[in-house]
Design a protein around this nucleic acid. Structure first.
Length: 277
DNA sequence: AAGAGGTACAACCGCCATATG
DNA sequence: TCATATGGCGGTTGTACCTCT
């Protein structure tokens, strides 16, 4: 949604009561929505000079932080413009459950999506749904006490309840701390868009001696997202080992590892073909 | 048709980490 | 070692737009 630029919010331009103060504020630093001209200027600057120094965008009375934010959240050419799909929403729920509110990390796992976008989506939709679902669950709990067997863990996350209800054919439950990935983080299944140089984590894991071919990178058009899945036998032992180490960051940073492992769990007879749809 | 309330989303704020002099 | 600048991140706010009554 494109809105007309305004100056009546977020700053001294709006606070300045007379024209002189307004002009002075404008001279200092602009705030509020970006105009198409500013966008164009920033875009030209970044494409020409790169993103080395945000504060050096000539002719823009914007802070470096503001420029960076605008580029990251709106102007970047690799951003997806279409709405977040149900599949992506599932991914967000899963990753949020796994990582908490580390939106930048979650965004890094979802090419074309920004942390701000994901955060907004979560705050405006998912969290609300969770709250509502939790309220329903609470009212149910009051009327009908749960009959949990010893060792059973009540589902603490209302989203998981909702996701389960929304997807009757979803895979069997696994440990509550694990994400309910829909077999793939990306739309389109077997994607091999990977970073050109391996992360330290990748090097570490690859160097550990297993699944090197599965987790190895292909080429990447940039942006740093580290996705890969080439199909077939990801080493579940590695995943279990990482879980034992309680290093979820490490686990989730390995391209294609976790989701393909879950596919093994869910679709043991056909884990490779299930990755594509 | 109009007002109220809700929703979506852009962008600011404050804090923190890192780089640089 | 310290001070300052800069960038990154999550939380939050404000407003245009939408839907409902």
């Amino acid at each position: 949604m494109v809105r007309k630029p305004i100056t009546s919010r977020h700053g001294e331009a709006a606070a300045a009561v007379n024209a002189g103060d307004m002009a002075a504020a404008e001279e200092r630093e602009r705030k509020g929505l970006w105009s198409p001209e500013e966008d164009e200027r920033l875009y030209t600057h970044i494409t020409r000079c790169g993103v080395s120094t945000w504060s050096s965008v000539i002719g823009l009375r914007r802070s470096g932080k503001s420029c960076r934010l605008r580029w990251m959240n709106y102007l970047r050419p690799d951003l997806k413009k279409e709405p977040i799909t149900d599949r992506e929403a599932e991914t967000i729920i899963s990753l949020q459950k796994l990582l908490g509110n580390r939106w930048s990390v979650i965004a890094a796992k979802m090419p074309g999506r920004t942390d701000n976008e994901i955060k907004n989506y979560w705050n405006s939709r998912i969290r609300k749904r969770q709250t509502a679902a939790a309220a329903v669950a609470e009212s149910r709990a009051k009327t009908e006490p749960p009959a949990l067997a010893a060792g059973d863990e009540p589902c603490a996350d209302a989203a998981a309840v909702e996701a389960t209800a929304a997807a009757p054919s979803s895979p069997p439950p696994i440990a509550a701390r694990l994400p309910v990935f829909a077999c793939q983080l990306l739309d389109g299944g077997a994607v091999a868009a990977t970073q050109s140089s391996p992360t330290a984590t990748e090097q570490l894991v690859n160097g550990a001696g297993s699944s090197e071919s599965e987790a190895s990178a292909g080429g990447n058009g940039g942006g740093g997202e580290d996705y890969s899945y080439s199909g077939g036998g990801v080493d579940g032992d590695m995943v279990r080992h990482l879980l034992a180490l309680d290093d979820l960051d490490l686990l989730i940073d390995v391209p294609g590892l976790l989701d393909s492992w879950e596919c093994e769990l869910y679709y043991p007879e056909d884990s490779s073909s299930s990755m594509s749809n």
